[in-house]
């Protein structure tokens, strides 16, 4: 076996691969073993080669690796479509209804809390912030008692999307890793989900601020 022979075999196989057939088991095994043999050989040459020749073998090896992956693809696609056909159906309608009801109820509760704060003389902004804080507290408390995950199983996005779900994501991972200590456990894990939320939320808000600044630059001082 030499370089030229391998290059030709790659070309021949490429034609076969392009047909996208699911190969018979024996044929498949034969081709896989052939590829293994060539791969090993080229790797051996590549390991010793230098400069441009090394590059050349490297390219050849990557070709072989690509074919190894590609060869299995038709079989995988056929299998996955069988699996998809037999897969248990997600109960989408039920999920959507439950998400609507639970999400709606949490927001309704938020509105009630907000109204109470407003009636007691809080300004609109403060009342909004206080409502968020109270809902976060409730979410955290229910998570601690072990109820929120039960709700989440039924409600799905209905209990993930509201700010109580944000609280749930913070408490659940912090609580789970308590035994790993208060620094690497609780302290670090508080931000497993909250971290990305705050990072990307803040980042995009800064971009918004910058864009707003440059659009209306004439109206503002630099600082």
């Amino acid at each position: 076996m030499d370089k030229q022979a391998i290059r030709e075999r790659i070309k021949e196989r490429e034609a076969l691969i392009a047909q996208n057939f699911v190969l018979a088991e024996q044929e498949m095994t034969r081709l896989q073993q052939e590829l293994q043999k060539e791969h090993q050989k080229v790797l051996y040459w590549e390991a010793k080669a230098k400069g441009a020749e090394k590059e050349h073998f490297n390219g050849l090896r990557l070709e072989i690796e690509r074919q190894q992956k590609r060869l299995a693809l038709p079989e995988q696609i056929v299998y996955q479509s069988t699996a998809l056909r037999l897969a248990p159906k997600q109960t989408v309608v039920k999920n959507v209804v439950m998400a609507f009801l639970v999400g709606g109820t949490i927001c309704l509760a938020g509105q009630v809390i907000l109204n109470i704060f407003l009636q007691n003389g809080l300004a609109e902004k403060e009342a909004g912030a206080a409502t968020s804080a109270l809902l976060v507290f409730l979410g955290a408390f229910l998570t601690g008692l072990g109820y929120y995950d039960e709700l989440g199983k039924v409600a799905g996005a209905g209990s993930i999307v509201p700010i109580t779900g944000f609280a749930n994501s913070i408490v659940s991972s912090a609580m789970e890793f308590k035994r790993e200590g208060f620094v690497y456990g609780v302290g670090a894990r508080l931000f497993t989900v909250a971290g990305p939320v705050i990072v990307y939320g803040t980042l995009v808000s800064i971009l918004v601020g910058l864009i707003y600044f440059f659009i209306n630059r004439a109206n503002f001082t630099l600082l």
């Binding site: 912030a129 206080a130 968020s132 804080a133 976060v136 507290f137 955290a140 408390f141 998570t143 601690g144 008692l145 072990g146 700010i163 944000f166 609280a167 913070i170 408490v171 659940s172 912090a174 609580m175 789970e176 308590k178 609780v186 302290g187 508080l190 909250a194 705050i198 939320g201 803040t202 808000s205 800064i206 601020g209």
Partner: peptide, 26 residues
Amino acid sequence: GGIEATSVGVAAAIVFGLVAATFFQP
């Protein structure tokens, strides 16, 4: 500006999260 406006919510999440995680068991 963004962080200032949401500071109450974030601080509440940190404090309540820490407290709940300290006192409850999964």
